[in-house]
Nucleic acid binder design. Structure first.
Lengths: 237, 237
DNA sequence: ACTCACATGACAAATCCCGTCATAAATGCA
DNA sequence: TGCATTTATGACGGGATTTGTCATGTGAGT
C-alpha cells in the first residue's frame, strides 16, 4: 500500500466531518479538517492537498466563492463540493464556478469514496503529464523546466535547475555532496573543488530571495537539506 | 460569441443524438456524430474534439472500454459517458475507467449543457496549462518550449522555436517575411538582410531531418507555408 | 581563540545563439 | 537554353550565458 493521500475537508458540522474522515480512510486518505472557508482556503493554498472537499454552505460564505478564491490563490487542487441542495441547478452552478465534482447530501459512502478516488486519480494523471512539484508557494514545473514562487518566475540556469530538482526529489532528507556530484554532475569521483558549494550558493541566493525565507539548509560536515516547509527560525512547541 | 466548440457524439440512437445535438447548440457547440465506438475512437483520436460524449452501451461494445482505447491512442479529450444505467455503481465504474464525467439517462437538458460546458472549461484550462500543438507526429509543447517528432526530441534554439510556433499558429497559410520580422523578431522595418531565410533554413534542416519529409514549403516571391500534413510530393488527389 | 567547513565575489574558459556575408542552387521567364 | 532574380546554406565573429576554479571572507564548534 502506498502512503496515504492528504485530503482537506472543510466542514462546520463536526459529526459529518468525522463521518467523512472515517469513510475516506477506506480510500487510503489522511484527512485534515477546517471549520471555515477562511481557514480552508488558507490551508489548501499551501498546495499540500491534491483533493479538497468543501461543504457548499458554511456560516462564513458560499462554497462556490471559496472555490473561486482558491483558484485565485493559484491552487490547482481538485475540489469536490458537497451540498445538501441536491438539485441540478445547484450542481450546475458549482461545476461552472470551477469545482471539479459535485456530490449531494445525503450520499452513499461508496460513492464518496469513488468520487474522491476518481479525483485523486485525475490529480495524479495531471501531475504526471504536466509534471509539477509544489512545496508551499514554491512550484517546479519539470517539463517546462521553470520555477515559480507564488506568481513570480525565478530564472535558473540549467545546472541550478537540475540541482533544485534533485533536492526536491529528496526534500526533507539529507543530501551529501557526493550524491550531488553523482546525480547532478555525473561525476563518479571527487573533483577536489567546491563546485557543489558554489552552485548551492547561487541557487540559494535566488531561492531564498524569492521565498523570503531559507529553504536550503546546511548540515555542517554532512551536506545539505532542502526543506521549504520548515518553520522559520523559531524554537519550541 | 467565440467560435463553436467541436464536440463528438458517439451514439447509435439517431433520435437521441439529434436531441443532444440540439441541446448542445445552446452551449455553443458544433456537434459531429458517430454511430459506433469503432468510428468514434477513430474520429476522436484525430485530436479535433476537446470533448467527446459516449453512450455507455452500443452494439459494438462497452463505453468504458472505448474510453480505454481512446486513451491508449493518446487522446486527451474530455469524455462524458451517458448511460441508461443510472445507478451509483455504474457511475463509479465509468469514472474509474478514465471517463471525466458521467450522466444518467434520462437527463435534464440544462444539466447536459452544464456538464459539457464544465468539461470544455476544464479542457481549456488543461490546454492553457499544458499547451500542446500536434501536427501528425510533430508535437510542440509551448510552455516546455520543446519539440518532439514521434518520441525523439528535436533541439531548437529559442529563435527557432519562436519561429516554429508562429508557423504553427498559421499552419497551412502563407506567411510573409514581413510577418515573421514583425512577429518573431519584433522588427517593424526591413533589416535588409536575409536573417529570416537563414533561420528558416536552420529550422528546416532540423525539422525535415526529424520528420523525414518536407514540412516548411517555400512560396517563391511570397513567403513560406508551414504544412506538416501536406502529402508527400505527388500530384493529384 | 583557533580551526575547519562553508559562503561568496571575481575571473576566465567554454558553449551557445544570432546576425551578417559570400557563394551556391534553384526557379521563372524570355 | 541562358539570364536574372530569388532562395538556400556554409562559414565567421561578436556577444551573451553558463560553468568551473580560485581566493578570500564568515561563522560554527571545540
Amino acid at each position: 500500500m502506498t502512503k496515504p493521500n492528504p485530503v482537506l475537508i472543510v466542514e462546520d458540522d463536526a459529526e459529518m466531518a468525522k463521518e467523512m474522515a472515517e469513510i475516506l480512510k477506506g480510500a487510503n486518505c489522511a484527512t485534515d479538517l477546517c471549520h471555515t472557508f477562511e481557514a480552508g482556503v488558507e490551508a489548501a493554498s499551501s498546495g499540500r492537498y491534491p483533493v479538497v472537499i468543501l461543504d457548499r454552505m458554511l456560516p462564513d460564505g458560499d462554497g462556490a466563492d471559496a472555490v473561486a478564491r482558491l483558484r485565485a490563490k493559484g491552487s490547482n487542487a481538485m475540489v469536490l463540493v458537497v451540498s445538501a441542495l441536491g438539485r441540478a441547478s445547484n450542481r450546475i452552478e458549482g461545476l461552472e464556478k470551477g469545482a471539479d465534482d459535485y456530490l449531494a447530501k445525503p450520499f452513499d459512502p461508496d460513492e464518496l469514496r469513488a468520487r474522491v478516488r476518481a479525483l485523486l486519480r485525475r490529480a495524479d494523471s495531471i501531475a504526471a503529464e504536466n509534471d509539477f512539484m509544489v512545496f508551499g508557494s514554491l512550484q517546479i514545473r519539470l517539463k517546462a523546466r521553470n520555477v515559480h514562487v507564488g506568481q513570480t518566475h525565478v530564472p535558473l540556469s540549467p545546472r541550478e535547475f537540475d540541482l533544485l530538482v534533485f533536492f526536491a526529489r529528496n526534500h526533507g532528507e539529507l543530501v551529501t555532496r557526493m550524491q550531488l556530484l553523482e546525480n547532478v554532475w555525473n561525476l563518479h569521483f571527487d573533483p577536489q573543488t567546491n563546485v557543489v558549494d558554489v552552485h548551492v550558493s547561487r541557487l540559494r541566493g535566488k531561492l531564498d530571495r524569492a521565498c523570503a525565507r531559507p529553504v536550503l539548509h546546511t548540515a555542517r560536515g554532512e551536506g545539505y537539506i532542502f526543506d521549504p516547509m520548515r518553520p522559520i527560525a523559531s524554537e519550541s512547541e
